[in-house]
């Protein structure tokens, strides 16, 4: 009797897993199709040489005015926007070289970056990105727009940014700002 009950649980469970697998598989299938159009220029650029680099602008927080200030950085040029976006975010996590504040928990790990329809970059962080965040409305806004403003400033293919935490959608970064929708750049937070 218990075995039959177990079977009753296992069979629908497996079906669900399979369905989920196909669902995600299909979804991911769309991304490369989008990418072909977007990543043509970087591809040809990087084909020229292995050691090609590009200069990017990172935004960090200033303790003086509470605004995001630019800082230049050289990253290796990559074959696709996701690849370069990944390097850029890793630089943001590493922090500023000019005494500005990086509003990202240093324990944050970037899991993946991928592009979906409509110029939306999906940035997937490890759970530390949210759990180790100090919380607070202003702090959460700063974290989000340091990333969004940096990404949209450097990659014309990225129009907006959607955040995932540990592969999942998350209600808020850490109690305040909703992560339910993609973020467009917010220039009023930039000092320029």
């Amino acid at each position: 009797m218990p075995r039959r009950r177990l079977l009753l649980l296992v069979v629908p469970g497996l079906t669900l897993c399979l369905a989920a697998f196909f669902f995600f598989f299909q979804n991911r299938g769309e991304a490369p199709r989008e990418l072909k159009d977007i990543s043509v220029p970087p591809e040809t650029a990087s084909a020229a040489g292995e050691d090609e680099t590009r200069t990017v602008v990172l935004y960090f927080l200033s303790d003086q005015d509470g605004l995001l200030h630019p800082e230049q950085r050289t990253i290796p040029a990559g074959p696709a926007v996701e690849w370069e976006a990944r390097r850029l975010i890793e630089e943001l996590i590493k922090g500023s070289r000019t005494g500005l504040i990086s509003p990202l928990p240093p324990e944050s790990e970037l899991r993946q970056v991928f592009m979906i329809r409509g110029g939306t970059a999906v940035v997937d962080f490890s759970k530390e990105f949210a759990d180790r965040h100090p919380s607070g409305s202003t702090a959460e806004m700063t974290t989000i727009y340091c990333l969004v403003n940096s990404l949209t400033r450097n990659f014309s293919a990225i129009k907006q940014v959607f955040f995932l935490v540990n592969g999942n959608e998350r209600e808020t970064l850490n109690g305040h700002i909703s992560l339910a929708k993609p973020f467009l750049p917010l220039r009023s937070l930039i000092a320029e």
Binding site: D63, G66, I101, T120, G136, T138, F183, L184
Partner: peptide
């Protein structure tokens, strides 16, 4: 709420209302 900021000297009271943060340009 009580605010939190990476910038330690941030101070003062603020009142917020919702920004729609929608992807649609017009709503934005």
């Amino acid at each position: 709420h009580a605010n939190g900021s990476y910038k330690q000297s941030s101070h003062g009271s603020e009142t917020f209302f919702l920004s729609l943060n929608a992807s649609d340009e017009d709503v934005r």
